[in-house]
Amino acid sequence: MKHPELTVSVSPHIHSGYTVARMMYENAGALIPVALAGWFFFGWPALKILALSAGTALLVEWGWEKLFGPPANIRDGSALLTGLLLGCILTTEVPWWIPILGSLVAITVGRHAFGGMGNHPFSSVLVGWAFLEISYKEILETYPLAEPRFLLEASEFFSDPPLIAMKDDLESILEVPWSELFFGNVPGTLGTVCVLAILLGGAYLLYRRIITWHIPLSFIFSAWLFALIMWQVDPEVYAPPTFHILSGWMMFGAFFLATEKGTAPVTPLGMIFYGIGCGVLTIIIRTWGIYTEGVPFAILLMNGATPLLDRIKPGTAGRSR
């Protein structure tokens, strides 16, 4: 006697219920403190930029899904996350069409040209950003001054982002208290200035186990160590290590950009090497490169090394292989 009402499938017969959509929305939720910090220091335009980039990303994803179908999927939240991340690494000074153009390139070229989520070798956010940076360098590198809404006073130390100040005149950054950098009371891109907010978001990602400690910690620590060595070699020429890890995109890159799913290695040792590569390359580019910020290029380069790093397999639980 057959029972057509019985479902048959392979084991296992239960699922954790944790889906891609939930992961992506939780990841986007971790950006809430970052977005608030952007509003706190740069005002309402910060939220306008985020809305424009996220909205465009969703619209493009929707269009791609209508045209080409899966794996494009507007409901899984990955487009929203990409849009928000892209908004976080823009300044509030950019015209309205910059976030739109950036999101368009990030979703189409950065992601779907390679076959959709999980298959793109390079961080789609940074592909979108790199396109803008190369095409509209002047627009992207016009930085607004930080104007805290309340509590803090507008900073008197910086008129340029700390990394530009470092390149211009190393002396000028030495008297700045670290707290200025930690709270983010400096000119810069809207989501990356406030280290405190990024640490809050990063702690949430770690708590929810969306990311593991391997990439952020090895990224930040190796950058710190490498900068420390350079600083020990000649403190007249090289900036102090703590300045390096508190300024620019270091924290944002370590917690949010370098950990983008699909572009980072998945084995513990691979993740640590990836983080070390990102950290060292960042300091190299910052110190000797022509770009002021080394994080995005370091991450893009290490994205390219990810397939290699994924070959470092964890020890199989058997003696013979």
């Binding site: 891609v20 992961m23 794996p71 076959g115 959709g116 989520m117 999980g118 298959n119 593991t212 799913k261 699909g262 980072a264 290695p265 998945v266 084995t267 994924d310 397999k313 964890p314 020890g315 199989t316 639980a317 058997g318």
Partner: peptide
Amino acid sequence: PCMNCGFCVRHCPMGLM
């Protein structure tokens, strides 16, 4: 498609990918 998030690698008791 697999999105290479690495959750399975984290938990695989046999140390596989």
